[in-house]
């Protein structure tokens, strides 16, 4: 059974005269214990999608979907408060720039303690305070912070970025979530710290069977950690499949371009040759092309691309393209 099953989720930015479709009918499914990567350029609506799932978008945005199943339960019909209660109980999120996501005037310890659900605590009210403290310390140990006393007393600005991200993960773990949404957790971090955070997430996935939705713009980097990958472009679904499928046989021209644009040590690029990149840049929200939004930049675009393609499924490898690269592999 799918943990999370979203079909045709759209997010609109409500304007004075007209609304802009920022995310256009994106589908996403997550199994239990799965690590799924959500990849796309900046501005492709990945973060929006994540925030829509967890329900923290403000009222400038309108979210609609054909299906929003959480553990087989349809959430769309539920009133907003009830939906939020269910989602925040089981889904946690960590954000990019962790320092700005922690309240600067409250100590880490307090912020950690208030995230702990009181239903987890047993005992009477005079014991709860102590239990809460102990639970907070355990959480810190879980994310690999040994100096819990020092950490609990500190304010966010006294800690490093990677340390704060660990604290954010600890806060996310406080509710014992089944799904952790990590929105570019290692943006603006050094690569050693990046590795640490990813390893921590991977171990949480293996030890606690926690599903992780890993959002990143860096396809190359997250392929080591994910089972499956969904690619988005400019708010549209592009391609989804297992990491091997996406990495070895991408069906969509955009995924192909993403892979080509990333360099690695064994790629034989002749000296002073141009690097592979699609022409142009991602369209801004005010001037979205009709049909497939990649159209103007796509090397394989033809007349049919002015109509948005339907998602085709080949053995679990989904692609949304009229002229997919599938035939070229045969």
């Amino acid at each position: 059974m799918n943990l999370l099953d979203i079909r045709n989720l759209s997010i609109e930015l409500i304007g004075k005269n007209e609304s802009t479709l920022a995310v256009d009918r994106v589908s996403l499914a997550m199994k239990e214990g799965e690590v799924r990567g959500l990849v796309g350029e900046s501005g492709s609506g990945k973060s929006l999608l994540a925030q829509a799932i967890i329900g923290v978008l403000d009222d400038k945005w309108r979210v609609s979907a054909d299906r929003f199943h959480w553990r087989g339960k349809e959430l769309l019909h539920l009133p907003i408060e009830e939906r939020k209660a269910i989602i925040t109980q089981d889904v946690a999120m960590i954000f990019q720039e962790p320092i700005s996501c922690l309240d600067p005037t409250t100590t880490i310890g307090e912020q950690l303690e208030e995230a702990i659900d009181s239903s987890q605590l047993t005992g009477n009210f005079w014991q709860r305070r102590k239990q809460r403290k102990e639970a907070a310390v355990t959480l810190l140990h879980k994310v690999g912070i040994k100096q819990h006393e020092l950490c609990n007393k500190s304010y966010p600005h006294q800690l490093t970025e990677a340390f704060c991200q660990r604290v954010m993960i600890a806060i996310a773990l406080a509710r014992r979530p089944m799904l952790l949404i990590a929105d570019e957790p290692t943006a603006s971090m050094e690569s050693t710290n990046q590795g640490q955070i990813f390893r921590l997430l991977a171990s949480l996935n293996q030890l606690k069977n926690m599903s992780i939705l890993l959002i990143s713009h860096d396809l190359e980097n997250i392929t080591h950690w994910t089972n499956t990958i969904t690619v988005m472009y400019s708010g549209q679904f592009v391609e989804a499949g297992t990491t091997e499928q996406i990495f070895n046989k991408p069906f969509h021209p955009y995924t192909q371009a993403l892979l080509d644009s990333s360099l690695n040590a064994n790629s034989n690029v002749p000296a002073k040759s141009r690097l592979m990149a699609l022409p142009g840049s991602i369209p801004i929200l005010q001037h979205l092309p009709i049909g497939c939004r990649l159209g103007p930049r796509c090397p394989r675009a033809q007349q049919a691309c002015v109509a948005a393609p339907k998602v085709k499924n080949y053995h679990g490898h989904q692609v949304s393209c009229h002229y997919s690269l599938r035939d070229s592999y045969k």
Partner: peptide, 29 residues
């Protein structure tokens, strides 16, 4: 509008809790 308020919402605190525990102190400053 700051991201830490959004993060506390994702943490599952109710609106009143957010206002009294985090927003008021930061706004008072």
């Amino acid at each position: 509008e700051t991201s830490y308020i959004r993060a506390t919402r994702a943490k599952g605190l109710s609106f009143i809790q957010i206002i009294f525990r985090h927003a008021i102190r930061n706004a008072l400053i």
